[in-house]
Design a protein around this nucleic acid. Sequence first.
RNA 1: GCCGGUGUAGCUCAGCCUGGCAGAGCAGCGGCCUUUUAAGCCGAGGGUCCAGGGUUCGAAUCCCUGCGCCGGCACCA
Length: 458
Amino acid sequence: MRSFHRTHTTTAARHALGDGEGPTDPVTLAGRLMVKRWSGGVTFAELQDGTGRLQLMARRDELADAYEAFLDLDPGDLLGVTGPVIRSRRGEVTVDVNKFQLLSKALRPLPEKWHGLKDVEQRYRRRHVDLIANPDVRDVFVARTRIISGLRRFMDSQGFLEVETPVLQEVPGGGLARPFKTHHNALDLDLYLRIALELHLKRLIVGGLEKVYEVGRVFRNEGLSPRHNPEFTMLESYEAYADYDDVMRFLEELLPATIESAGKEPDLEYQGERLDFAPPYRRARMADLIREATGIDVLTEPDLAAAAAKAGVDVQANLPWGFIVMEIYEKKVETGLRQPTFVMDYPLDVSPLARKREDDPRFVERFELVAAGRELCNAFTELTDPVDQRERFLAQEATFKAFGGETHPMDEDYLVALEQGMPPTGGLGIGVDRLVMLLTDQASIRDVLFFPQMRLAH
RNA sequence: GCCGGUGUAGCUCAGCCUGGCAGAGCAGCGGCCUUUUAAGCCGAGGGUCCAGGGUUCGAAUCCCUGCGCCGGCACCA
């Protein structure tokens, strides 16, 4: 079949009948045959299209010789049908088929009609079957699309300009993660897939695009888990002449708007837990949260490593102060934060791109929004001082040379941009997949990605 | 990478503990039935029990190794 023109979707056909009994004028539908029942002189079947399902009725009386061909159809076949919409004796909205046409034959059977496809491995490896057989899965992905378009709509409405920046980078900056490496042949140049959007967007802020954002795929060459996929989607935005307090207020508008675009209420349920996203959200300094949870005062504690160990958080000897603070926070505080909370003022040591607090230079103006024990957003008042920035990169290098792990590499192009003069800026990053998980009540990132990363099938 | 769980028909699952002919439902095939809603009834068929090795008279079942999947840990500030 080159083409087949339908007059109605199954949902439109249902509306065409309305409360009446029919018959309506004939409608032409197309979709996948899902279920057949009865095989005498009348056969009922269900046709599934992009909008839903509708019952079909095929009668020997009506179809004559073609009836036998209808009986030969298999669940899974793609079918076009024409006929009036009626209400069956049992009250079901039904198309009384006058004509039908096989549009495409399914050579493989559908999964079990009642249980659907449950095997998670098959659901991920053969997502097309999952989508046919499990309507809930389709709903999740439709919600994902609505959430992302809702995010864009909100950003646009606030005057942000959506931009695109390079995926292939000579220096994979803006975060700490092992990058994927590739090579450009013509340039004979090693390149990396980006691990964050940050540095290029900030270069645009220098360039005078005062409110920019990007929704883009980033890549991290690290382990997989229910919350980690090697490629995932980030939204980052930057606003000139704003600080992290502005970003907090901004998020308190963005999140409710996004929740609405997902068709949810701010008071939502995630994995059996009620979470209330009606603003304002709690604001708490990391140091205060640590004191609440452990009794440790990181501001005054003379031997923080020892205090951490006493609280059950073992850290490497001589680890810089800020890293110890971060360890204690992650091990003792973060998972306990269930309701949305702005965790404010991160240690400077672990935040090389954020602006130093003037009242206490051990900390920076940075927050993460945490809910259900997980980071949803990361934001800061950006560091715009090129001299300070260079020192921070060097300090990172020194730390990671000593303690291992990934480091922020020195990005000279970025430093040159800062030297041009960057306005004070508030920046924000949102892990879009994790936000979608939250708003669709999914426990695994694999259930909000059409094609999650899998090992080679055996 | 480490630890635990798991893998049986196209799909959903029993059987494994306690070794003894490979099972059910759905789907498919043949037959009956002109208003069904997971339709029903009758009949026949369908297996690399993830792979390889071992123990045993005999292995889906017990043991070892490998692989996939799931979860946890590590990595991921």
